[in-house]
């Protein structure tokens, strides 16, 4: 599965709820304000384990738009919209934590 999170973990609990139910084979894509969770900040430990496993992606345009390219946490994989499409194709059912 592909889990899509579009809210900052400082504003909403979407990331937390996603982490509560994501299984061992699914990946996560951070988009829109969700990319704030891809930056080095006090909430970074929430996804650190998943990121080490190479299972956290962030939408590059959203990262750049928010000025956090240089503050990206370790092991986050950046993708463009084409990469977003590939993730949807490759990982089956998409779940949006809107």
């Amino acid at each position: 599965m592909l889990h899509i999170v579009n809210k900052s973990s400082f504003e909403r609990n979407s990331l937390k709820s996603c982490l509560n139910t994501i299984d061992d084979t699914s990946v996560m894509l951070l988009i829109e304000d969700g990319v704030i969770s891809a930056a080095k900040n006090t909430n970074a430990p929430m996804i650190a384990d998943l990121a080490v496993q190479g299972r956290v992606y962030a939408l590059q345009g959203d990262v750049e738009a928010r000025g956090i390219s240089s503050k990206l946490a370790d092991n986050i994989k950046l993708v463009g919209y084409a990469g977003f499409v590939d993730l949807v194709v490759e990982h089956g059912t998409a779940v949006s934590w809107v």
């Binding site: 579009n6 988009i31 829109e32 304000d33 939408l59 345009g61 463009g80 919209y81 084409a82 977003f84 499409v85 809107v98």
Partner: peptide, 12 residues
């Protein structure tokens, strides 16, 4: 931003 992201996704 939802509609913008959806559009960029559809276009890609």
């Amino acid at each position: 931003q939802a509609s913008d992201t959806a559009y960029q996704f559809a276009k890609a």
